[in-house]
């Protein structure tokens, strides 16, 4: 595929944050190729789920988009610019996996949120009045203002997540990367995060969420990229989040139940298949499209 095909439409206002992952291959220093020939494009106003089993390369892809790993082949561009340039302009905000953070570090909630503002501060990183205002406003948005003087280790799992979400808000990055944001988080925080992501989408942000929690995906993501060392499928949730693709990505790790209703009174073929990771069953019709899903808390009535 030529680089020409990734050219942007210059008239498109949102094009400055279009994310192009172009034939990216990433090898770790031990010679393990964690991603190869990975290609997809995403634009503003999108929430995209990055789905794959553990070890499929989700975090690797994030680290590559962040410029932490350099692809051995291919390239990642943001609005046509290399990652490093985009970062200088504070375009990419990132919310780390909980395991990657040292919670004993002697910093307060406010300190962490202010870290999102470093790119705007002078080189001594002394916060200006606007930085403090933005930090406080971001904390208010995630409902954590009361905790701003707490040491970060003294928070619950959900509160910790919110603090990092506030940091991303304070950074004003238009691309937001969340690595497994729902692991170890209570149902309210989950709902609050999703609500906030929807607001950001309405605000023309591009949000990329990695997860292996399948049940949540259809309820708030409009695009899905399914990976297993490379992209297995990518596109709008309705077309991509199909039983066939998921079975391909998750293989034997999901339960596959077949419920046949062909003897229904109207006589039409009415076969259902249920894929389940034992928490949230996904129900597919005979065309392999998702017809129903259930996730505790979020949209209970909706899916009844």
């Amino acid at each position: 595929m030529s680089h020409g095909s990734t050219k942007l439409n210059k008239n498109d206002i949102s094009s400055e944050i279009d994310l192009h992952v172009n034939e990216v291959t990433v090898a770790y220093n031990n010679g393990h190729v964690a991603l190869f020939d990975t290609t997809f494009d995403l634009g503003a106003g999108t929430i995209c789920a990055l789905v794959g089993v553990n070890g499929s390369g989700k975090s690797t892809l994030f680290k590559t988009i962040m410029g932490f790993l350099t692809p051995t082949r291919g390239s990642v561009t943001i609005g046509g610019k290399p990652v490093q340039v985009a970062q200088k302009q504070n375009m990419v905000a990132y919310i780390p996996q909980a395991e990657d953070v040292d919670w004993a570090f002697p910093v307060s909630v406010m300190d962490v949120v202010l870290m999102g503002r470093y790119g705007y501060m002078n080189f001594l990183r002394i916060p200006r009045a606007t930085d403090l205002e933005i930090a406080i406003e971001s904390l208010r948005r995630v409902n954590m203002l009361d905790y701003k003087e707490r040491q970060i280790g003294e928070l619950s799992g959900g509160q910790k997540k919110r603090v990092f979400l506030a940091r991303a808000l304070a950074q004003r990055g238009r691309i937001v990367l969340l690595d497994e944001p729902f692991s170890g988080v209570d149902v309210q925080t989950e709902a609050a995060i999703i609500e906030l992501l929807r607001e950001l989408r309405a605000d023309e942000h591009l949000i990329l969420v990695s997860t292996h929690d399948l049940g949540l995906v259809p309820s708030f993501c409009d695009q899905v990229v399914i990976i297993n060392r490379t992209v297995l499928a990518a596109g709008p949730t309705h077309d991509t989040f199909t039983q066939e693709n998921l079975a391909r990505a998750f293989g034997g790790t999901l339960r596959d139940l077949r419920i046949d209703h062909t003897d229904a009174p109207d006589g039409t073929s009415n076969e259902f298949r249920v894929l389940s990771d034992d928490e949230e069953p996904l129900i597919f019709g005979h065309d392999g499209r998702l017809v129903d899903h259930w996730h505790p808390g979020i949209d209970e009535e909706e899916s009844k």
Binding site: F36, F40, T72, R73, T230, V231, A234
Partner: peptide, 17 residues
Amino acid sequence: TTDALLISGDAHPVPAL
């Protein structure tokens, strides 16, 4: 590994993406 993956069929991205 990279060469091998690129030569084998699965390596090519799904056209629809």
